[in-house]
């Protein structure tokens, strides 16, 4: 094995790239869960975002439009989940699974004609002074705008939940929907907005996979990224700043195992390729063994105002 073939600068840079889709999806899902809704359909929304973003970018030639279309498409898809769980009071776990199955089918159907095509590349952001710093420049400051947008989003969500009144109301809805309802807040409307936001984020994450990370469309290309995003929310104990840590950790594992495979490590390839999933399980076990979860108290419980 030749470890020296792994360039640390490129390694860090590619960790940022590979963490971004999970980060986007996870931060969106965290807001949804903070509002007390467990949407297990992240995988389905991500892959829908991936295919819609790819198709739009290929046909318009603009990755930016691709991202916008992906966010919109996934958000609209997530509204179907919202209508079912919030208005028709269906089981959230089952509906989330259904959303994933629908998303996988829908994406395969839309994506068929686009297989094997190449997407227009997104131009990298050239940050004038920071980008010229010898080592740190190429490592941290020469990425596409979406990487920085995802970081900004984490900051924005953190600030929103911690400092704003709207964020407080959202958390109240997630902790005790009955109390929030009694105070006169529109529980269902707030949850629908959170679901919509989560859908849009998952769509952006999916589009990042198909437009930047890979960049191609193949059926089932998310390969569990949506589920890993769900695991990261648990890992992060529903806190925005820890979502960032979690996503970068998983990005790191993914990139490292790919690099080790390429460098011809003596570890069998199948062990390396299952490592992101095994580590997800391991982390879930550690987090749950520690006891303190910090999950919103109304998470996954249906809300029905009887009067």
């Amino acid at each position: 094995m030749d470890l020296s073939s792994i360039n640390p600068i490129l390694l860090i840079a590619s960790i940022m790239i590979s963490a971004t889709p999970i980060l986007l999806a996870a931060i969106g899902e965290m807001v949804v869960e903070k509002a007390g809704v467990l949407n297990l359909g992240v995988e389905g929304m991500m892959i829908t975002g991936a295919v819609v973003g790819f198709a739009t970018a290929v046909s318009t030639g603009s990755p930016t439009l691709g991202f916008a279309a992906a966010a919109l498409a996934s958000a609209v898809l997530s509204l179907s989940f919202g209508v079912l769980t919030q208005m028709l009071l269906s089981n959230q776990v089952a509906t989330g699974l259904g959303l994933t199955l629908v998303g996988l089918g829908l994406s395969a159907l839309i994506g068929k004609p686009y297989e094997g095509m190449k997407s227009p590349t997104m131009s990298k952001l050239d940050i004038p002074i920071l980008g010229d710093i010898p080592v740190l420049g190429p490592m941290l400051f020469s990425h596409d705008p979406m990487v920085y947008f995802s970081l900004f989003l984490v900051l924005a969500v953190w600030g929103f939940l911690k400092f704003t009144r709207a964020g407080l109301i959202l958390r109240a809805v997630g902790e005790s929907h009955d109390a929030a309802h009694a105070l006169g807040y529109k529980v269902i409307r707030i949850r629908m907005m959170a679901i919509f936001f989560g859908g849009a984020c998952a769509g952006l994450g999916g589009a990042y996979l198909s437009l930047v990370r890979v960049p191609q469309w193949t059926e089932g290309m998310t390969a569990g990224a949506g589920w890993i995003a769900l695991a990261i929310v648990v890992f992060a104990s529903w806190r925005a700043e820890r979502i960032l840590i979690g996503a970068y950790l998983f990005g790191g594992v993914t990139v490292l195992q790919l690099n080790l495979q390429a460098a011809g490590a003596r570890v069998p390839v199948e062990i390396l390729s299952m490592s992101p999933y095994l580590i997800t399980i391991l982390v879930l076990v550690i987090i749950s063994a520690r006891g303190a979860h910090g999950a919103p108290a109304s998470l996954g419980r249906p809300f029905h105002a009887s009067r």
Binding site: L101, G103, L104, G105, L106, A108, L109, K112, E219
Partner: peptide
């Protein structure tokens, strides 16, 4: 894939 969607 349309059958997959159909089932979903």
């Amino acid at each position: 894939a349309s059958i997959q969607l159909f089932q979903g």
